[in-house]
């Protein structure tokens, strides 16, 4: 079959909501788009462990410490699910790491902001995980099977992340003056970067249209961002706090909140590497990877020795195979 026929069949499957599986024919661009998106997503989970990870040893109660550990561990797990999904597309995890470590692959810019107070753990859970969930729920219906399945598992696990974040902020909002101030300050710092997480506006987003046609994305950046603003504008009232936007106002005609302009200049600069923590985050990841090289090598070397010993044993003692199930 020629490529054009294959491409038509492919799009037909997508239109009928038939999932694409790893060995199915797919256009090169579809594969590339997915590799880019899934690996970025995986990198975001793994880099995203750092800003919260640095508060594990400083969590103010043992309960909070256990929750935070479990949450950051979940992020590692989610990174792993996503790397696995990307690997079905013919790229290895090492290759993806190399792209990350050489600045060729991006990750969510949000993780280039510093976590400077305990309240940031709350704000990240509420706003950053909230924004992530808003993005991820539609992705669990994405046309590519392995990605969709990874997202189903991630969404299921992530629901506790946002709730624990909000609980942190709620506790702070009922606490002493200093805690309340800490709470508002964290919301102020994380609100705009959280809005930027949905990516550039639809007019400036190079991938949205094609991704929608392929059902990799189901809603545009701006649609999801609006939904997020609408939800948060209501939720913040429970905290007795405010969102740092003087233009935030309910629009009766549109049945949505209006909100102020996003600082895209800041967004593109953080994407380009000029955020407050870009260099630090990346160098931490590279250092962890390089410090681990001898460990990974040792495990392989040991396995090779063991396999050689096992092989000579097996050839001498042939046993019958029985079904495992």
């Amino acid at each position: 079959m020629d490529t054009i026929t294959l491409a038509i069949q492919f799009q037909k499957k997508i239109d009928q909501d038939i999932k694409i599986e790893p060995r199915d024919w797919m256009p090169d661009e579809y594969r590339k788009t997915l590799i880019r998106q899934i690996s970025q997503h995986a990198h975001s989970e793994v880099v995203g462990m750092l800003p919260e990870g640095n508060w594990i040893t400083r969590a103010p109660s043992l309960r909070r410490k256990a929750i935070l550990l479990a949450k950051v561990q979940d992020e590692a797990g989610h990174g792993l699910y996503l790397y696995s999904a990307a690997e079905t597309l013919g790229i290895t995890r090492d290759e993806m790491y190399q792209q990350l470590h050489t600045n060729k692959a991006k990750y969510s810019s949000i993780f280039n902001y510093p976590t400077i107070s305990w309240a940031d753990m709350g704000a990240i859970g509420w706003l950053v995980d909230g924004a992530a969930i808003m993005n991820q729920v539609p992705l669990s219906r994405c046309s590519y099977g392995p990605y969709a399945r990874a997202m189903v598992r991630i969404c299921k696990e992530e629901s506790f992340h946002q709730r624990q974040g909000f609980e942190i902020l709620l506790t702070l909002s009922k606490g002493n003056k200093a805690q309340q101030k800490m709470c508002q300050d964290a919301i102020n710092r994380w609100w705009w970067p959280a809005l930027m997480m949905f990516g550039p506006s639809d007019n400036d987003s190079p991938h949205t249209a094609q991704s929608m046609q392929w059902k990799i994305k189901r809603f545009t950046n701006d649609e999801l961002r609006q939904k997020f603003v609408d939800v948060c504008a209501e939720q913040v009232k429970f905290l007795g706090m405010t969102l740092p936007d003087k233009d935030l106002k309910w629009n009766e005609a549109k049945q949505h909140y209006d909100f102020g302009p996003i600082n895209w200049d800041e967004f593109w600069n953080v994407v380009k590497g000029n955020g407050p923590c870009n260099k630090e985050r990346l160098s931490t990841r590279i250092q962890a990877w390089e410090n681990g090289a001898w460990v990974r090598e040792a495990a392989l070397a040991y396995e090779e020795k063991k396999a050689a010993r096992q092989y000579s044993y097996d050839t001498e003692n042939k046993t019958n195979q029985v079904p495992v199930s």
């Binding site: 060995r23 594969r31 690997e87 013919g90 290895t92 090492d94």
Partner: peptide, 18 residues
């Protein structure tokens, strides 16, 4: 993960020690 032809040169070379 074996899909015939690989991406056109955009990928870094794979480490055999993964």
């Amino acid at each position: 993960g074996d899909y015939g032809e690989i991406e056109g040169g955009t990928l870094a070379t794979s480490s055999s020690r993964e």
